[in-house]
């Protein structure tokens, strides 16, 4: 349980740090790193980094967008055919980031398993 929380927090912190230097895939880099350094078990392998990045991105988006009355988020939500609802766009963004993080964390886990079994 504690490992899950540690992984969750470290993934967010690392992703936030890396996003200062790297493009969007900083979240993938962060999730890969924590999945190797703080390996998790079973569904947590995917879901911890997934929620970690989802919450990071969604919160960040909300902070930026709410400060500007969601002006652009409404338009982009319409553009991407999400009904013009900014909250759906925020959630959608979070899920995308989460998915990328979760998927690569599964790969990280496989690296750990693979290297241990050698």
């Amino acid at each position: 349980m504690t490992k899950n929380i540690i992984n969750f927090i470290v993934t967010i912190l690392l992703a936030a740090l890396l996003s200062l230097f790297l493009p969007w895939w900083s979240v993938m880099t962060a999730a890969l790193t924590t999945s190797i350094c703080i390996p998790l078990k079973k569904v947590a392998v995917f879901f911890v980094p997934f929620f970690s990045i989802l919450i990071f991105w969604a919160t960040y988006c909300f902070m930026l967008s709410s400060a500007n009355d969601f002006t652009l988020a409404k338009k982009i939500s319409q553009l991407l055919q999400l009904g013009g609802n900014p909250y759906i766009l925020i959630l959608f963004t979070g899920i995308l980031g989460g998915l990328a993080a979760g998927v690569i964390a599964v790969f990280g886990k496989q690296i750990v398993i693979f290297s241990r079994s050698k």
Partner: peptide, 21 residues
């Protein structure tokens, strides 16, 4: 037609950075 969604939507360099006066 769709933009590259990761680039486009990530909050640190995507369109959320344009959400401002």
């Amino acid at each position: 037609e769709a933009p590259p969604l990761g680039k486009f939507l990530n909050p640190s360099s995507g369109i959320w950075q344009n959400e401002t006066d």
